[in-house]
Computed example of a mutant assay.
Amino acid sequence: MWKQRKLGELGSTFTGLTGKTKEDFGHGDAKFVTYMNVFQNAVASLEQLDSVEIDPKQNEVKKGDVFFTTSSETPEEVGMSSVWKYNYDNVYLNSFTFGYRPNIEFDLDYLAAMLRSTTVRKKITFLAQGISRYNISKTKMMDIEVPVPSLEEQAKIGAFLSNVEQTITLHQEKLSKLQSLKKAALQFLFPKKDEIEPKARFTNFNDIWKQRKLGDVTPLRGGSAFQSSQFKKTGIPIVRISNILSDGFVGGTYAYYQEQKSDEGYVLYDGAIILAMSGATTGKVALLKDRTNKKFYQNQRVGYFTDLGIVDYSFISIVVQSFLFNVQLKTVLVAGAQPNISSKEINDFKFYFPINKKEQAKIGAFFKKLETIILLYQTKLDKLQMLKSALLQKMFI
């Protein structure tokens, strides 16, 4: 049977570092748990500790302690918890969080998951107070009720969720390495600024590279101004700026439109390369990779790099995602103004292209394979995170 118990009945709070100035940090034989360590990790990380001098007057953290952030810019980020699972001397807590020391035994993996579950987070968020910055009271936090099953059941839940978390971490690390590999490959397989050939080339290719305007090989096409009042629940999905995701692919929630008879000027198909032309993500390039729909419609302020067949299209995809594209993009974005770019500006960007289409295809195929693997790991990671979220919701009602 699961009992609901108040945090105040199960433990007591303690303060973080006090009486310190900025000159006291960055040196010394003691460590302290940083604010971001608490904020980012359900279980505190040993890699996010900073140095401070040993001070017997401060509260040392102990294995089993829980840390809570006390303030943030949004109520949803107040009271983020982090569990300390280690036995180390002379480790303190930063002054922007407070500590909680249970007086009963918890399985620490269970405790970490439970305190970050949707159910408990809603209770904590409800207590956040403020206008421009939100804070939370330690006293009110201690009145929050949390589920406390038997220690045996906690251990089973904790072990299961810990395995899921370890799998997620493993996929995140692999994904990060693949993204770093892609970034490094872009540096080597494309000419740097003021150079006409890349550092590395595939074997049997030594033809020259020629500079061309982007608009001469893949002119950017604008979209159509679809009326939001005519959006449907089904029909042809519309690619809007919000569908250009940070991972470099098109996705998210679509609006739908009734299929039009003459749609050649704004229709998109699987494999299209698109660009955000205004808003916070201006200049962000994404690949449309979705075979569940036969076609898509292109909204206004979403650009499409048209395929004229002059340059291998997979190579175009790499060019517009390269650091060289971003360098030229910065020259047309006005600092402090609402981000906005035109087709003409993009079409005037200049790049070096290999004149040999087989070399274009070789480079494009290399990155396409790499992106397929990245997408595979990203999809697995998304599914694991959805699984974890669903499990937390069902376990902690």
Rank of each mutant, 00 (worst) to 15 (best):
K31Q: 05
S51Q: 10
V43P: 11
V33M: 11
Q58G: 12
E47V: 00
L46G: 03
D55K: 00
F67P: 01
F68C: 02
V52S: 00
N41E: 01
G64W: 14
I54H: 00
N37K: 05
N59R: 12
M36K: 12
V61Q: 03
D65N: 12
D50K: 15
V38G: 08
V38F: 01
V61C: 01
V33G: 10
G64K: 10
P56T: 10
V66K: 08
E60Q: 13
E53K: 12
E53T: 14
K63G: 05
V52G: 01
N59E: 14
F67I: 08
I54P: 00
G64A: 07
S45P: 10
Q58P: 14
D50I: 05
N37E: 11
M36H: 13
A44K: 03
F67G: 00
S51P: 07
N41H: 06
N59A: 07
V52D: 01
K31P: 04
N37M: 13
Q58I: 13
D50V: 04
Q40W: 04
K57P: 05
V52C: 04
E47I: 00
G28R: 07
V66M: 11
V33D: 07
E53V: 14
D50Y: 03
F32Q: 06
Q58R: 07
A42P: 14
M36D: 11
G28Y: 03
D29F: 05
V66I: 13
A42N: 14
